[in-house]
Amino acid sequence: MLEARNLKVSYGHIDAVRGITFRVEAGEIVSLIGANGAGKSTTLRAISGLIRPRAGEIVFEGKPIEKAPPHELVKLGIVHVPESRQIFGRLSVAENLALGGYRARDKHALSERLDYVFGIFPILKERYRRSSGVLSGGEQQMLAIGRALMSGPKLLLLDEPSLGLAPIYVQRVMDVISQLRDRGITILLVEQNVHEALHISDKTWLLENGRIVLFGKSGELLYNEQIRDSYLGGGI
């Protein structure tokens, strides 16, 4: 569904992503893991159009998208939930969700999606009219994902959804992510929490210093020595 070929992304003179090639098959959860600064978030930003890559191609459902601006990509069905949520704290939960559906024209579909979001995140229905700035971290993450779902994405880019969340929320979020995959949404997950990422995803790509160093089925990688020692703290 999504393919990146020899992607290179730089911030000025700093090369964050140095030529990576990877794929995401439809209907799968694919995780992109690696240490801080490895280039994971940058990759997502290149896919969602926030940054233009220096070189390389990104192809989505057969169409090249590396030059497209973010609002175009939302129309195509690619939705990026950025690092640290970045919800609109000064707006209400309702307005945040409405913004998620900004591009959508079909009122019926919008109301269906809203009901679905309330279904998986009942707290959002409770706090619907309230200002979103007062939500807790976990609730904000739910809002961020709910917001993204309002545009009916085909491919969901999740940037560190578990960051800063209490374990119970992490579990909740991971459950929801699985549910979404079951509903047919393809998910590209960036995570520093390697353990969770490997458990939930189908395939995993490991990024180090802007390059892909390992790839495989997540189940198998759980037992991979390199990953265990560097990222899982050795031992089971």
């Binding site: 926030l50 609002h71 990026h80 950025p82 970045q86 609109f88 900004y102 591009r103 917001r147």
Partner: peptide, 22 residues
């Protein structure tokens, strides 16, 4: 809709872009 988009852009234009706001 446009008004909400404006307020969103005022608060965080990056996130707004990711919502499909031009």
């Amino acid at each position: 809709r446009l008004g909400i988009a404006m307020r969103a852009c005022a608060e965080n234009s990056t996130a707004a872009k990711l919502m499909g706001v031009n």
